[in-house]
């Protein structure tokens, strides 16, 4: 319950960022370099109060966090969603077609799953180059296999059940059996995994951005903000890294809490 409330709040903040943020942190004309690195609670010449301080370019940290949440959520949801669609389709096909195709697909899945996500993501970024979009693509490629394995497992159980046999006896086309009959029954585990995956993707995007492989300096995501604050940390200017990190933490924890709850409610066997 706490998770749901928190998450709703976070999503609302992210969606409404342009309305409620004191400043557009991506609009360089609004930034005043003279306001750089002000501590929390400082006031600018224009009378704007920087509740959480500013970064080195004079960017309001609070606004940066609100806009950064947008990026994080979009990256997280987009990559988890796309990976879910691809992985589910592949898993369903593997389970339904069987034979050589299935074992080939499952080999690939096992291969992929034996490497940690961050390594897959690094590999993809090494190939694709830097950038937020490439991070999304890397995350999709790194995560689809989880869904494929789970969906195949669930679908294999479902395939043996009577209603599929009945559907086959009626000579319904294969794709219809796949998507109208098998798919709905595989959805519960997919939803649970996808929720957890959003949290993981957000964490990974932040990590990759922190490493300088994701968002650009002019449109900072949470990871990027933390990264720019890193060099000032040693001189005691904690707020540039601290507050975005807290925002990130709360986001990830609340999504994980929701995921846990979903797992209990939907009670899938394979997630």
């Amino acid at each position: 319950m706490v998770g749901v409330i928190l998450l709703t709040l976070i999503v609302a903040l992210a969606v409404l960022a342009p309305v409620i943020a004191p400043q557009n942190p991506y609009d360089l004309t609004q930034l005043d370099i003279l306001d750089g690195r002000l501590p929390p609670g400082s006031e600018s010449f224009s009378g704007l109060v920087y509740h959480l301080g500013t970064d080195s370019q004079g960017r309001d940290i609070l606004s940066g966090i609100l806009y950064g949440l947008r990026t994080s959520l979009i990256v997280g949801v987009l990559s988890a969603f796309a990976a879910a669609i691809i992985g589910t389709t592949v898993g369903l096909i593997a389970a339904y077609v069987g034979g050589r195709t299935e074992s080939a697909i499952m080999r690939l899945v096992d291969l992929q799953l034996s490497f940690p996500t961050i390594l897959m993501a690094l590999m993809m970024l090494a190939i694709l180059g830097k950038g937020v979009l490439n991070v999304v693509i890397a995350l999709i490629i790194a995560e689809w296999a989880t869904y494929a394995r789970t969906v195949r497992g669930t679908a294999l159980v479902e395939r043996e059940k009577e209603y599929i046999e009945a559907a086959e006896a009626f000579r319904l086309p294969r794709w219809r059996i796949l998507f109208r009959h098998l798919l709905p029954n595989c959805l519960a585990p997919v939803i649970v995994i996808a929720t957890m995956q959003v949290a993981r993707a957000i964490g990974l995007e932040a990590t990759l951005s922190f490493l300088g492989l994701g968002a650009s300096v002019t449109e900072p995501s949470l990871g990027m903000l933390i990264s720019t604050g890193y060099q000032y940390l040693l001189t005691g200017l904690y707020w540039i890294s601290f507050f975005p990190g807290i925002a990130l933490l709360i986001t990830i924890v609340s999504i994980n809490l929701v995921g846990d709850r979903l797992r209990d409610v939907l009670n899938p066997r394979n997630a």
């Binding site: 964490g203 932040a206 904690y238 601290f242 990190g245 990130l248 933490l249 924890v253």
Partner: peptide, 22 residues
């Protein structure tokens, strides 16, 4: 341990630096 799962490693690293070094 839930916190340990959710905390982004890189941010924890920064906080460790802040507390123990700075």
């Amino acid at each position: 341990s839930i916190l340990g799962f959710s905390l982004p490693t890189f941010w924890v690293g920064l906080m460790l630096i802040m507390v123990f070094a700075v």
